[in-house]
Simulated scan of single mutants.
Amino acid sequence: MLNGVLKLNTQYHFKLQVSEFVGGHHSNRSKHYQGRAVDVTWVNGRHVGKGAADRALMTACHELRAATLVLGPGVPDHAAHVHCQW
């Protein structure tokens, strides 16, 4: 997961603000608690869902073939962040 976040910065040139690695309020089976998921609230200085490059970030997460689940605006409970899971 950390390698994926690093690649989002170094290969895709995203500047990210991560709101959750482990912790927060997630379902009992959340991959956050296994250290396999990250929530991003800011992309390149803009809040997700308010003009941020959230779709581009989601595409990049999908392109990192190890990402198994990517959620963001348009999915319930993900209007203000991108969830990328490995």
Rank of each mutant, 00 (worst) to 15 (best):
Q11N: 13
Q17Y: 09
T10V: 10
G45S: 07
V38W: 03
Q17C: 05
V22F: 11
K31P: 05
F21I: 13
V43M: 05
V18I: 15
V22Y: 14
N44W: 06
G24E: 02
G35F: 07
H13G: 08
T10D: 12
S19N: 14
L8K: 06
V38K: 00
L8I: 06
K31D: 10
Q11R: 14
W42R: 02
Y12A: 03
N9W: 13
K31R: 13
Q34N: 13
Q34G: 10
V38S: 01
L16N: 01
G35P: 08
N28C: 10
K31L: 14
R36V: 05
Y12T: 01
S27G: 14
Y12V: 07
R36D: 04
V43Q: 02
G35K: 08
A37S: 11
D39S: 07
H25I: 13
G35D: 09
V43D: 06
V22S: 13
S19F: 07
V40P: 02
Q34A: 12
D39I: 04
Y33W: 14
K7I: 10
F21A: 04
V40T: 04
L8P: 05
N9M: 15
V40D: 03
G23E: 02
Y12H: 12
D39C: 08
V18R: 00
W42T: 04
S30G: 07
R29Q: 11
Q17K: 14
R29I: 09
V38I: 15
Y33L: 14
R36L: 12
G35T: 07
G23T: 04
G23K: 01
F14Y: 10
K7H: 12
Y33V: 02
S30D: 04
S30L: 06
G35S: 09
T10E: 14
T10Y: 11
N9P: 05
A37M: 03
G35M: 08
N9K: 15
S27V: 09
K31Q: 12
N9I: 15
F14P: 01
Y33D: 07
V43Y: 02
K31G: 09
F14K: 00
S27E: 09
W42M: 01
W42K: 04
G23R: 04
D39G: 05
H26V: 06
H25N: 12
H13F: 11
H25M: 10
R36G: 03
Q17V: 09
Q34E: 15
Q34T: 13
V40W: 00
S30F: 00
V38D: 03
G23H: 05
Y12S: 01
K7Y: 13
K15R: 10
D39Y: 05
S19H: 09
V22G: 12
E20P: 01
L16V: 02
S30M: 05
T41R: 09
S27D: 13
K31T: 12
S30W: 04
V18Q: 00
N9F: 14
Q11G: 11
Q11Y: 15
L16C: 01
A37P: 04
G45T: 02
S27Y: 08
K15G: 05
K15Q: 12
